[in-house]
């Protein structure tokens, strides 16, 4: 129990301490508030041929994207904290590594919770037609966010254990996820894309998380716009769960292998390299 308790504590303190710096707070608010601009622009538009608001069709995709950014966030934290010695510090105290991992997951969850709150709370006022009174909507929303986190955060641990440079993760991760979001059916039906793109996109979790989120927010008749004309909920849950299984099995293996090799000399060497680049 001790690593769990200390891990939750370190996750909370880390998250709070980052978001009480000016830079950290600005990052959290600016990046997460960006989607609100699009919601404001499209607030009165409707999807042609239907009376479904464009805003309410974009909102689930944006939430899915914010959840999937936790892959990059988690990988980035892990690589950066490996570089600055946080991971080694954890290794130096009894049962520190277990608590470190709990802390890492806690920060990822808090980041996503903050991002979702920043978009969702104003979004509900901006966008008409969200079924606010429907308990099923809230249940589905929370359920898909949790499933998305389970699919994405271990994936971030896996990537952060393999890729050494936080700068590479930050750069490629941002453009990668943004690019992927553009072709994952979040903002228009993927049926307009080439078949092979559809295939690739439908292997990855973002498409399915977006589909799941839309099934929560949009009325039943909107399913007609999806591939196959249904929400395909069982397959959505199945594929997200499969990603979670992959991450939960491989993530700890790679993390343990990486952490075992961590030493002061390795930290010093990376510091030297990082300073040379500046």
């Amino acid at each position: 129990m001790q690593p769990l308790r200390l891990g939750l504590a370190r996750g909370w303190v880390t998250w709070r301490s980052v978001n009480t710096t000016r830079e950290g707070l600005a990052n959290t608010i600016i990046w997460n508030a960006l989607p609100l601009v699009f919601l404001l622009i499209f607030r009165n538009a409707t999807i042609p041929g239907t009376d479904i608001s464009v805003g309410v069709s974009l909102l689930p995709g944006m939430l899915a994207m914010l959840v999937v950014f936790s892959v990059m966030g988690t990988a980035y934290y892990l690589a950066a904290e490996r570089e600055d010695g946080t991971l080694l510090r954890a290794k130096a105290v009894p049962r520190g590594t277990a608590a470190y991992v709990v802390g890492l997951l806690t920060v990822a969850v808090l980041d996503v919770a903050a991002a979702v709150a920043i978009v969702l709370v104003p979004g509900l006022f901006i966008v008409p037609g969200v079924p606010l009174g429907d308990a099923g909507m809230w249940l589905g929303l929370v359920g898909y966010i949790l499933l998305g986190l389970m699919a994405c955060v271990p994936l971030g641990v896996l990537i952060g254990s393999v890729v050494r440079s936080p700068r590479v993760i930050g750069g490629l991760g941002f453009f990668g996820i943004t690019g992927l979001a553009a072709i994952s059916g979040l903002f228009y039906p993927i049926a307009v894309l080439w078949d092979w793109v559809q295939w690739v996109v439908q292997i990855l979790p973002l498409y399915w998380l977006g589909l799941g989120m839309r099934s929560v927010f949009l009325p039943a008749e909107a399913a007609a716009l999806e591939s196959g004309g249904t929400w395909n909920t069982p397959l959505t849950i199945g594929i997200l769960a499969a990603w979670a299984v992959i991450g939960f099995v491989l993530g700890p293996v790679l993390l343990r292998r990486m952490a075992r090799r961590e030493s002061g000399a390795a930290v010093a060497e990376r510091r030297r390299q990082a300073l040379q680049r500046v």
Binding site: L6, A9, R10, V13, T14, S17, V18, T20, T21, G24, E81, D84, G85, T86, L88, R89, A92, V93, G264, V267, A268, R271
Partner: peptide, 19 residues
């Protein structure tokens, strides 16, 4: 150890109490 830059956003007392 030689070079540690970890926990830069934490406060001194907070970090020491935690560890």
């Amino acid at each position: 150890l030689q070079s540690w830059r970890d926990h830069a956003t934490w406060r001194v007392r907070e970090l020491l109490a935690h560890l």
